[in-house]
Design a protein around this nucleic acid. Sequence first.
DNA 1: CTGTTAGCGCTTTCAA
DNA 2: TTGAAAGCGCTAACAG
Lengths: 330, 330
Amino acid sequence: MNKQTSLTDIARVANVSVATVSYALNNRPEVSEKTRQRIKEIANQMNYHPNKAAQGLRTHQSRLIGMLINTFNSMFNGELVDDIRETLDHYGYSLVVIGNSNADLIDSQLFDALIIFNYTTTKSNLTALIERTKIPIVLMANELDFANVDNIVIDNQSAITNLLKQYEKSQHQNICFFRGSRNSYNSAKRFASCRAYFEKYHPEYDVAAHTFNGHLESAPTYPIAKKLLSEKKYNFFFCLNDMMAYGVYRAASELHLKVGVDFSITGFDNAPKSGEIYLPKLTTADSQLNTWSQEVAKSLVSRLEHPETPAQKTILVPTKIVQGASILYK
Amino acid sequence: MNKQTSLTDIARVANVSVATVSYALNNRPEVSEKTRQRIKEIANQMNYHPNKAAQGLRTHQSRLIGMLINTFNSMFNGELVDDIRETLDHYGYSLVVIGNSNADLIDSQLFDALIIFNYTTTKSNLTALIERTKIPIVLMANELDFANVDNIVIDNQSAITNLLKQYEKSQHQNICFFRGSRNSYNSAKRFASCRAYFEKYHPEYDVAAHTFNGHLESAPTYPIAKKLLSEKKYNFFFCLNDMMAYGVYRAASELHLKVGVDFSITGFDNAPKSGEIYLPKLTTADSQLNTWSQEVAKSLVSRLEHPETPAQKTILVPTKIVQGASILYK
DNA sequence: CTGTTAGCGCTTTCAA
DNA sequence: TTGAAAGCGCTAACAG
């Protein structure tokens, strides 16, 4: 491993001072155009690349944005991450993704800002992390009230309301709900919205009594759905995410029941490739990825460049109902 | 953003020199046990965390391992990444994942070693990157011959041979192949193995003439499969990955043809959750994730800790055939 | 327009 | 057992 070329090396070769080299390469006005060109040339030839550690140490900023995720398995939506990465890139920041268990990296002052993508975690875990971290943070699946935190989250409530409008329109009466763990922000929000809706419009219907925990996955949902479907107790399956809806689809297929004919079902998320997998197409709520990623990136960048701007607290990302053929309108 | 506590801060409070603090916190023998305890106590109270940039600048190592991936969408196998992360963690290294487009980070001497997970890229791109990087590198889906590079890849050839044994056993005759782009290392390797096999055992069968490009995805495979299935020209669909097999499943379902009854099909990868999605279960080749991640992590760590050890060049990760019910044995 | 120099936070040699 | 000091590569204030 022979050493990388440093500013000093270039200065020596170019017969100028390190300051001049630094000025030249950073496109600063202090240096003449001629010198700049000459130095850039030399730097290129010597295959120079600035040392990020040194830059960071000196300037107290790395232009690195850390994204924290639960597990790499949980990265259900790479497209969203790609979008954020691209936007940040455009503003001169690099996105690096790390697992929850490497959260100590955050304490080592490696990142200028943080995106927390975890959607399953306890509030106290998160709080502890945030309290000792002073850099700008965006939470994408949580709502916490700290001076340095923006919450940019799906507008679960309006989505649920719109989904439930479909339910009303379909004139079903026997609805059941599939939710996930209480530690999932989205699942909790969505469920709360369901309860609030029924509280208001159908107070006689005890939502909790007709709710099952599918753990946000298809596998645990499947056996429950199979039992419920064969009992014919419910004819509307309201799933708080698409994966659980898939578990119901599978149960139905094995029981030779037709989705959208023998019973109705909705999902949430509009999971990528769902169009290919759900037959017939699932009616679900799509979180507008583009809007979401833009908001996240812009929020971080603006707070990085204008530290005086206060955090905007909570921003709700709109959703759109994607009409499938999974509901039977009587 | 009030400043983080530094070694100097601690030294001042503890009334010792920075050197002593550094010794104490790094568990070095130069300092008395009593002082160490006292300093650790203080560091804790002051919520001290070492500055990685400074450490890196001084020691010329970051204990950061970079993983390069195409796009975050392409992260088909988070489990593998999680496994690698965990093993590296155990050895005191942190894994950080970055997108292809941020490859410049690599030049900034941020990482001690590199894992390149891209499975679709041109060789020249990769070569350029590797040639200017002197740190240890592991390629997980490519084979390149450089002093600092280990290739730790799926044993595609033996897997294909085993899969084709199933074909022989099934006594089918009309086989067609679905492959991906030539830029995909795995697809290319697998296809070459198919050709070599037929060259040897069925030289009369023109593999190339019965091969279709499904781009490794189900969507583009689906219409081709639908056409082929309705023409009834082939009764064995040999897919070079599971996603394409899914496209065939879907086409079959729409044509009311039964997988494993009306025709046979195999995949490759044993994609996670495939058990839930493929009905009936797909016969496919499983790359042993555990072995793979262990090999990757260990290779890097050993070369990091014992730089004199030469790279092992190519290591083939064994696969195992997973028997589904997607083949009709006549 | 260019150079000198201090210093970011840390590790490590050398001296005490 | 502890401290003083140099220096990693870079930026930026200041002097010329």
